[in-house]
Design a protein around this nucleic acid. Structure first.
Length: 641
RNA sequence: GCCGACGUAGCUCAGCUGGUAGAGCGGUUGAUUUGUAAUCAACUGGUCACCCGUUCAAUUCGGGUCGUCGGCUCCA
């Protein structure tokens, strides 16, 4: 049979003999790259290379250079790891072992608790298996037979999975003595696997449900080449250096103290400067966009939280009540009810809307101890919150306004790594289907009209309404929810929020909850990682470090520093009895954007020798010119100077 | 909260099988007056996270608590 074989952009024809598999053809056609071609695609379907073509459809070869190929390699690696584990620990029961973005994992239930040392032994066993060149063979079985097969082996998890598969037949893959339930395809032989590494052990609930048993999960990765594997490991080490927790300490930005409690943030002077810059900018942008500011208390009567529904729907995140005289008061987990109270303090006309009220509102939420994470998940944090009270006819424009605002913030702060999601109605929620549908549609339309790329995140909305989330990505690729817009038709209902319409009758406004940064803590955390601590000039805690070469220039250096400070520049002078090299080193390590070196030459002509962070010596510049340049850079919020 | 690992000077870390601790950096003092990433020296610094137990003796062994880290589950 004569079939066209496609590789990347090229194609050639090959005439298959009876019973000749794709693998045999590949070995003849591409002997030099036989281990990089791992599967094939026929009519859109991925198949094993051992497949014997039955029709004259085009065959597209899949190599490990493609994402499909890499996934197959990694998935096969997880099977090989499972085989190794079964050999070492025969009582191990396997659950699931998929490939993921960074590699693969396998969830295992076994009596022995694995330690990091055991990973080396498993890896060793895997190398043995790859040297044995075991073939992966596929077998299609009626589902009942497959269930019987796994039942006999005591593989209860496989049986459970099978019992929920609707198909009548399933495929099993065997290599060596190991057989697993799997859709495939797989690499033809274990010898294809050369470059892999087991990374870590973690706990994971069976089927991701915390009511189920916790299994042991082993994470690992595999790559087509040694260089790529080494590159992956180095990239992880590099990413760890950007970790905001590490930089927070090195740059003296913030701390979280055991003595005070987990998840409670202390902003040190340098971190506080960055926060103040962010806040100043934030306020100025709000004024430009027609917002007003409000301030509200940190605690309020429990009755208020019952009215708002938080007591019913959000109690697990709220701290225990405080007894105040005869009443119970709650620390606020959200700001919304307070803004509503301000709204309700007088009768509102349709002419007053939209009302946009913003507050840097500090809230406290009980987060489970295991989820706390530096600045990115804490128990007390300040939301850059705002609530918009809008008429139905204003909803679309207002959502778009918020999205535009968010985009402006993200761009100004130079974020390049983020994803947008549209989250729909969750299981636990209030309101009518029509309400949810209308609100979700409003968000979707706004996203489309703004030409924003987004993903629908089903069931991830808040109990009171759907939302659009912007998730910022941290140094090692984890997503953290930042900016969000949420439509709420529930609270206005519960608090009986109204405005008087043109017809003189009461109408219900729609409420929008939104943050354009997320929270000051989380935003700062991701910002630190974004810049690896090297903030752009406008945000840098110290903008200029003035370094006199000897103490002869000390007075001049102090005068220059005072002049810079006078111009609104955050300048510091280093008058320690250290060599200039040591001062420069320290300033570089503190990631100060500019170092102004002053020796006898500079002092004589009212100038400084400018050194830029990461760039080195920039030559001598007159002080006035230097100031002008700095002010311009600060004003324009240049991201990469 | 769950699974696992970890918790020694301000920081980074050493301390074999139990006999109350060390280094470098930092800080202080002194000397050095220096041209773009660490000048030299002396001094300083720790109820070994906390509590209970085993032991003649615990930083070291066991249990618990708190915290941190990697995941899971859950969220700004």
């Amino acid at each position: 049979m004569d079939i066209r074989i496609v590789v990347d952009d090229a194609s050639s024809r090959y005439s298959f003999n009876d019973g000749e598999s794709i693998l045999m053809a590949v070995q003849k056609l591409f002997p030099q790259q036989k281990r990089s071609i791992v599967a094939a695609r026929i009519g859109g379907l991925l198949v094993d290379l051992t497949t014997i073509p039955t029709r004259a459809d085009d065959i597209q070869l899949v190599s490990t250079a493609s994402s499909d190929g890499l996934e197959i390699l990694r998935h096969s690696t997880s099977h090989i790891m499972a085989e190794a584990i079964k050999e070492l620990y025969p009582d191990a029961k396997l659950a699931i072992g998929p490939s993921i973005d960074t590699g693969f994992y396998y969830d295992i239930d076994m009596s022995k608790t694995l330690s990091p040392d055991d990973l080396a032994a498993i890896e060793q066993k895997m190398h043995e298996i790859t040297e044995r060149s075991e073939h992966f063979t596929r077998q299609d079985k009626p589902i009942a037979e497959a269930i019987e097969f796994f039942k006999e082996r005591g593989d209860q998890y496989k049986v459970e999975i099978l019992s929920e598969i609707p198909a009548t037949t399933v495929s099993l893959y065997t290599q060596g003595s190991f057989t697993d339930l799997c859709r495939g395809p797989h690499i033809p032989s274990t010898s294809y696997l050369k470059h892999f590494k087991l990374l870590s052990i973690a706990g994971a609930y069976w089927r991701g449900d915390e009511k189920n048993k916790m299994l042991q999960r082993i994470y690992g990765t595999a790559f087509p080449s040694k260089e790529e594997l080494v590159g992956f490991v180095t990239a992880r080490e590099e990413a760890a250096k950007r970790d905001h927790r590490k930089l927070g300490q090195q740059l003296d930005l913030f701390s979280i103290q055991e003595q005070a409690g987990a998840g409670l943030v202390f902003w040190h002077p340098k971190g506080a400067i960055v926060r103040k810059e962010i806040e100043d900018f934030w306020r100025a942008e709000h004024i430009k966009r027609g917002y007003e500011f409000v301030y509200t208390p940190h605690i309020a009567n429990l009755e208020l939280w019952k009215t708002s529904g938080h007591w019913g729907f959000y109690q697990q995140y709220m701290y225990s009540p405080l007894q105040v005289d005869e009443d119970q008061y709650m620390l606020k987990p959200m700001n919304c009810p307070f803004h509503i109270l301000i709204y309700k303090s007088q009768v509102r006309s349709y002419r007053d809307l939209p009302l946009r009220w913003a507050e840097l509102g500090t809230v406290y939420r009980y987060e489970k101890s295991g989820v706390l994470h530096g600045l990115l998940r804490v128990r007390g944090f300040t939301q850059d919150d705002a609530h918009l009270f809008v008429r139905p006819d204003q909803l679309n424009d207002e959502v778009k306004g918020v999205l535009d605002f968010t985009r402006h913030m993200i761009e100004t702060f130079g974020f390049t790594k983020y994803n947008i999601y549209l989250s729909t109605r969750p299981e636990h929620s209030v309101g009518t289907d029509e309400g949810w549908q209308m609100a979700t549609e409003a968000l979707r339309v706004a996203l489309e009209e703004m030409h924003l790329v987004y993903t629908v995140d089903p069931g991830e909305g808040v109990f009171y309404g759907p939302k659009i989330d912007v998730k910022l990505v941290d140094a090692i690729g984890r997503e953290w929810q930042g900016p969000t817009v949420q439509v709420d038709f529930n609270l206005p209902e519960r608090f009986d929020v109204t405005y008087i319409g043109e017809n003189g009758k009461e109408h219900r406004p729609i409420m929008l909850h939104r943050v354009v940064l997320g929270s000051m803590e989380r935003f700062f955390g991701t910002l630190i990682e974004q810049y690896a601590g090297a903030f752009p000039l406008w945000l840098a805690p110290v903008q200029v470090e003035v370094v006199p070469i000897t103490d002869v220039q000390e007075e001049y250096a102090k005068a220059i520093t005072a002049r810079l400070v006078e111009c609104g520049i955050r300048a510091k002078v280093d008058i320690r009895r250290e060599k200039m090299q040591a001062k420069i080193r320290d300033a570089e390590m503190q990631k100060v954007p500019y170092i102004a070196v002053i020796g006898a030459k500079e002092a004589a002509v009212d100038s400084v020798a400018v050194r830029m962070r990461h760039e080195g010596d920039q030559g001598v510049v007159a002080v006035d010119q230097f100031v002008e340049r700095l002010l311009e850079e600060i004003k324009s919020k240049v991201i990469f100077a």
